[in-house]
């Protein structure tokens, strides 16, 4: 493998990193604007026209703040916690197919960094490891509130991973492959999985809220009970990393949901456009734009729910997970299997 053949992949990795960071940066701004809209306020409007530079100001502020590491904490693990959180958040994006193939200078480049034949499992593995960031950080802070937040995060994510896995099992029965690229290709021509797996999508969506620690499931950082939850002791950019990883997770889970259930980069009348213009590159670029539209809708949905629905109590969260979602997930798997047995042929 020569260096030149690696170049497109390298460019894609850097571009993905930049886009993820940019989307996360402006998600913080969008969150405040959406909150302001839903509460009939104006929101941040001082930095730049319409407050457009607010995220930059926030970022500079994070970097300039004094960095406090508690004396009684475990210093190495205290620093490691936010590192794991943001690393795992950034790692998932590489298996997502961000678009069809681009043809540049005679070479066709797929807009996906790596197409693993176990794509979904990779995402799942990285997500399940991501909880260590919260757990290690919460424990290393040596603070009762942080520890409570860490313990809540771990049990919550473990519980909801099960129903998330069950919803994916039902989806895999339909698709017959774990490769995200193939799943997207199968959905070409409005055969979106949402039509075949509506219950599976609902389960996945609810679990995505729990996995990203978003309201109504943000018990690990529940400020009415736990001060700041697992990041009580964190300050400066280390706190910034924790908050940032939440927004990156939102972006990635939006991308995964769009890919698995909403056709990824497929859009209506795709073939007609390809026939009319004859340009694959144009279709690819529009497809990527559509994928981002879907993702932005999901990000907006996350925010919409956050500012509409109050937080669950912890026992309610556990009851919903174990007594509501897991039986529903098992029912969905069985129903899908039976349906496939009778109707596929």
């Amino acid at each position: 493998m020569t260096l030149l053949s690696l170049l497109p992949t390298l460019i894609l990795i850097v571009a993905l990193f930049a886009v993820t960071m940019l989307v996360a940066l402006y998600s913080t701004f969008a969150e405040r604007k959406v909150a302001a809209f839903l509460q009939d306020r104006v929101g941040p409007n001082r930095a730049g026209p319409g407050g457009i530079f607010q995220p930059l100001a926030d970022g500079v502020k994070f970097f300039m703040k004094e960095e406090v590491i508690p004396v009684a904490s475990n210093k190495f693990l205290f620093v490691l916690g936010p590192c794991i959180a943001i690393m795992c958040a950034l790692m998932t994006g590489i298996v997502v197919p961000w678009g069809d193939t681009l043809t540049l200078f005679g070479a066709s480049i797929p807009l996906q960094i790596v197409d693993l034949d176990i794509g979904i499992l990779y995402v799942f593995a990285v997500v399940s490891v991501g909880v260590y960031g919260i757990m290690i950080g919460g424990w290393a802070s040596n603070n009762k509130f942080s520890l409570m937040g860490a313990i809540r995060a771990s049990s919550q994510i473990i519980s909801y991973e099960i129903s998330m896995g069950l919803s994916i099992v039902a989806l895999l029965l339909v698709t017959g492959t774990m490769s995200l690229h193939e799943i997207v290709t199968q959905q070409h021509g409005m055969h979106w999985n949402i039509f075949y797996q509506p219950l599976g999508f609902l389960l996945f969506l609810i679990c995505a809220f729990a996995e990203t620690n978003r309201t109504p499931f943000d018990l690990p950082e529940c400020e009415t009970e736990l001060v700041g939850g697992y990041h009580t002791e964190y300050s400066s950019m280390k706190l910034g990393f924790y908050l940032f990883s939440e927004y990156i997770n939102m972006f990635i889970s939006g991308a995964i949901m769009a890919t698995l259930f909403f056709g990824g980069y497929n859009f209506p009348f795709m073939d007609n456009l390809l026939q009319a213009t004859g340009s694959q590159n144009l279709v690819t670029i529009i497809g990527t734009a559509f994928l981002f539209l879907k993702i932005f809708f999901f990000i907006f949905f996350f925010m919409w729910v956050r500012w509409t629905i109050p937080r669950f109590r912890y026992d309610q969260l556990m009851n919903l997970g174990w007594k509501g979602l897991i039986p529903l997930g098992i029912f969905n798997v069985v129903a899908t299997a039976v349906g496939l047995l009778f109707f596929r042929n």
Binding site: S128, Y132, M135, W139, L147, S154, S155, I157, I158
Partner: peptide, 8 residues
């Protein structure tokens, strides 16, 4: 994670 949970 469960091991860590119990130990914590």
């Amino acid at each position: 994670v469960l091991f860590l949970y119990v130990l914590m």
